[in-house]
C-alpha cells in the first residue's frame, strides 16, 4: 500500500495523502506529499478512527482542485458522500484508500471502535453502551422517557459529539443557539439538546460511532442516531452516504407519499 501511494504521489496522480504518523507514541494526522516521500515509511494505517474527513473538507476548501488521498474505510466513503451532497467536498478530488483492500489477510488488524464490556461500576449504574434499539423499544412509554432522561442528564455539554462528527460542518450550530437551548451552564437542557442533534443527524449520520466514543458521559448516542437512521430509511427509503440525492428533510420533493397519523 505504501508503494502504491508513493507511486501516485511521484506521478502526480495524487497531490497529497492524508494519513497518520507517529509522534511521541501517538498517531497524529499527517499530510504526506511528494516533498517528503521518505516519511511514508512512518505511515500508520491502523490508527483508531478519527474524522480525517473534516480535514479533507478544510483542505479542499482552501485549495480547490487539489487531488487528495485519504486513509479510511467504508464509513469514510459514506461521510465524504454526505459532505459532497452538502457541497463541502468535490467527490472527484478525493480518493479513499482502505488498507483492507491492500492486505485483506490483515483485515481486522485495524483498530475499529469496539464497544467494551462495561465494568461492575458501570453495570451497577445501568450504563451499557451495548444496548440495541430493541432494548429501548421493549420499554413502555414512561420508562423510555426515564431511560433517556437518565442518559441525557449525564451530559456535561462538552460538544464533543458534535466536534468529532465527520458530517457536522456548520459554522453556526443550533446547539449553541441561545434562544433554542440554554448555552453556558450545565445542567444541559435535556432532552432538547440531544433531540435537536438527533434531528440534525436525520439524513446525515453514517453510523461511524465516534460521537459515542468521544462522549465522556457514556451516553448511548449512536443508539439514538441509529434509530434516526432507521426512521429515515422506513419513511423515506433514504440511506445516508449511499443515496446520492439530497436528504429528504432538505428538499420539498415532488409528491406527498406519507399519510397523516390519526389521533387514536
Amino acid at each position: 500500500m505504501r508503494e502504491q501511494i508513493r507511486s501516485w504521489l511521484e506521478s502526480g496522480e495524487m497531490d497529497a495523502f492524508l494519513g497518520f504518523k507517529e509522534v511521541e507514541g501517538h498517531p497524529i494526522p499527517h499530510l504526506f506529499s511528494k516533498a517528503n516521500l521518505a516519511e511514508l515509511e512512518g505511515l500508520i494505517v491502523n490508527a483508531p478512527r478519527y474524522p480525517l474527513e473534516t480535514l479533507v473538507a478544510e483542505m479542499l476548501q482552501s485549495q480547490p482542485g487539489m487531488k487528495l488521498g485519504v486513509l479510511g474505510d467504508e464509513t469514510t466513503r459514506r461521510a465524504l458522500n454526505v459532505l459532497s451532497i452538502w457541497n463541502q467536498v468535490s467527490p472527484e478530488s478525493v480518493r479513499v484508500i482502505d488498507p483492507d483492500q491492500f492486505a485483506p489477510e490483515e483485515k481486522g488488524a485495524r483498530k475499529v471502535f469496539r464497544v467494551s464490556e462495561p465494568g461492575p461500576v458501570k453495570l451497577e449504574r445501568g450504563i451499557d453502551n451495548r444496548l440495541g434499539v430493541d432494548a429501548i423499544q421493549a420499554l413502555d412509554g414512561d420508562d423510555r422517557v426515564r431511560r433517556w432522561m437518565y442518559e441525557f442528564q449525564k451530559c456535561i455539554k462538552c460538544y464533543g459529539c458534535r466536534n468529532i462528527c465527520p458530517v457536522c460542518f456548520c459554522k453556526e450550530c443550533s446547539l449553541e443557539h441561545q434562544d433554542l437551548i440554554s448555552t453556558g451552564t450545565v445542567l444541559t437542557e435535556v432532552p432538547i439538546f440531544h433531540l435537536v442533534r438527533a434531528v440534525h443527524m436525520a439524513g446525515r449520520c453514517i453510523d461511524c460511532g465516534m460521537c459515542e466514543q468521544a462522549c465522556p458521559a457514556d451516553i448511548p448516542l449512536r443508539l439514538l442516531y441509529r434509530k434516526v437512521n432507521s426512521i429515515v430509511m422506513e419513511l423515506f427509503d433514504y440511506e445516508n452516504g449511499l443515496s446520492s440525492d439530497q436528504p429528504p428533510l432538505s428538499v420539498l420533493g415532488e409528491k406527498v407519499v406519507l399519510e397523516l397519523k390519526p389521533i387514536h
Binding site: V133, I136, Q137, L139, G141, D142, D143, R144, V145, R146, R147, W148, P191, L195, A198, V199, A202, L224, K227, V228, I231, V232, E234, L235, F236, P248, L249, L252, G253, K255, V256, L258, L260, K261
Partner: peptide, 23 residues
Amino acid sequence: YGNYMTIKRIRFLQELLEFVGLG
C-alpha cells in the same frame, strides 16, 4: 409545496418522539 415539507418533518418527529417515550 410548503406542506410537503410539513408532513415529512412531523412524521419523522412523531417517530423520534415515540422512541424517546413522548410519542
